[in-house]
Design a protein around this nucleic acid. Structure first.
Lengths: 321, 321
DNA sequence: CTGTTAGCGCTTTCAC
DNA sequence: GTGAAAGCGCTAACAG
């Protein structure tokens, strides 16, 4: 910057003005300064700007678990929305753990992020009280702190309606073992519709990871259920694997549904009926809030994606309660 | 920091010394200062430290494509290695595109990263000449710039040996359409062993994404081949899907192999025979170089992971060339 | 062993 | 329309 100033015989302040606060000086000088800056390959020092202005244009993103298929894609959506605003993302992975979630939040704040976007890990509520920057929570409508999320409950409703319309009268709902607003809302949405339509349900809590879910489903008493409605794609994929291994045809004997429209659901056979969130829209709103362009919580609609893992139940419906 | 200094009646420089350069002042004063710092919840300003020292403890990571299953997991490995050294990662996604790869590199440098770790996108060679920070390239031994990678060529050899030992005498190799050191090395390793053992091979270039690969394999003339050896898991998974759809049994009629041991290969049925990289070791070396603890390129061994997608070829081997 | 001093590169009043 | 000066929070010489 000094180089530019010296070269043109102006002060550094003038250069700064020319580069950002256009209009405060003669157009041709500004133009000359910008040309020289470009020529010299001038790149402002992020540290100095940040120190001076108190803002870093850095947003921290705390994700529950990178190994789950939804979150890398979600991160991509946030990245795009951030870049559109000239902001960059510092991404941290809580690895499914509540204490490391809090640790990562602190760590990112120490790193100088202007705001924090947090997708709470299951069983790990957010404590905003100790954090000095705005926290944007991407969770579910059930969380009073929620800033942006899709309508998980409605997703649950859509799944339940789909299954009921196909003729299922007895459904097993696979929920998570850890408390999670997201899973709870999804399950509540399903339960609501199933209850309305007189479909018998039982809720089974299963762990988070593929192998664990497979083990549970391998030993699960289906108890006449003709459908498994899962709170996450990962569970559904594991359920399909386990069921198939048991010689139970999917969807011939048992239908399976997931949640999130992750790529796993497109790989597994039969391909998975699931619910799609509009990640781009959620990310867009989250970053608009981060940038201070807007505020207030927002809820986004979801879409049912019917695929090959759901069909009519096998026999003339028996066991209606 | 001023608060701490005032409270204890010492200068800010002393506080700085107490907090980092232990030994330069009396133990009890240092202890008192640290206690006060903790009590006040003192968090050093990253921007100020960075401005003053010229180092940010930020490492840029440029990934080819977040949507490919390997890279989020790879990112996780880098994150862990970075955190162990008190460094943080600024992650960028080149989205499979050469020009955005270069753009992301520039962008991260402007953000003040101390060094850059780049996994080159297919068809996107790295140009280090214009970058002012050290660039750590994670690619393959074929790239003279390579700093850390696994031995892709040996992986190819292991796959080829596995297939040959099973009795395959005619193999189709699926390579990428874009030039990639990684894919080239893998294919070269396979070709080397197949040639040695008199196995007939044909190399087919296929695009990168699931749907595209499926389309190609759906229309592929197998020409008597009893195995498909793919340069990436994604290709292998798509190939299995397409083959199964064509009514070709995997591995009964055709065996399929992949590369990278991604989760996709554990989801697809039959589960995929593939090659595992030691991501943690590669990340560890990359960050050791980034931290200036060591230098020099390093190559890491790979492991064949035999699963259900490979078996003996169907009939008494015919068509030996 | 501790304090003083001088900036790191930038932005922002405020005078001219 | 442009420049001078002050200072963001910290650290590294150096002096005491």
């Amino acid at each position: 910057m000094r180089q530019i100033a010296d070269r043109l015989g102006v002060s550094r302040a003038t250069v700064s003005n020319a580069l950002y606060h256009t209009g405060r000086l003669s157009p041709d000088l500004a133009e000359r300064i910008r040309a020289t800056a470009a020529e010299l390959g001038y790149v402002p020092s992020a540290a100095a700007v940040s120190l001076r202005t108190g803002r870093s244009a850095l947003v921290g993103l705390v994700l529950p678990d990178f190994a789950m298929p939804l979150f890398p894609v979600f991160a991509q959506a946030f990245e795009r929305a951030a870049k559109r605003r000239g902001m960059a993302l510092l991404i941290a992975d809580a690895m499914g753990d509540a204490s490391s979630q809090a640790g990562e939040m602190r760590h990112l704040v120490a790193r100088g992020v202007d705001s924090l976007i947090v997708i709470p890990a299951r069983g790990a509520p957010i404590d905003v009280s100790t954090v000095q920057v705005p926290v944007i929570v991407v969770d579910s409508a059930a969380n009073p702190l929620n800033t942006a999320s899709c309508d998980h409950r409605d997703g649950g409703r859509q799944v339940a309606r789909h299954l009921a319309e196909l003729g299922h009268r007895r459904v097993l709902i696979l929920s998570g073992t850890a408390t999670s607003n997201v899973a709870d809302e999804r399950v509540a949405g399903m339960a609501e519709i199933f209850a309305d339509l007189g479909v018998a349900t039982r809720i089974v809590a299963v762990p988070a990871y593929l192998e664990d879910v497979e083990a549970v489903v391998a030993a699960l008493d289906l108890d006449g259920a003709t459908a498994l409605a899962c709170a996450y794609d990962a569970q559904a994929v594991a359920a399909i694997t386990a069921l198939t291994q048991r010689g139970i045809d999917v969807p011939g004997a048992v239908s399976v549904t997931g949640f999130d429209d992750t790529v796993w659901g497109r790989i597994v056979r039969p391909s998975l009926t699931t619910v799609r969130q509009d990640l781009a829209a959620i990310a867009e709103h989250a970053l608009a809030v981060a940038a201070g362009e807007t505020d207030g919580a927002q809820l986004f609609p979801v879409t049912l994606v019917p695929r090959a893992s759901t069909s009519r139940p096998p026999s003339p419906t028996k066991g209606t309660p």
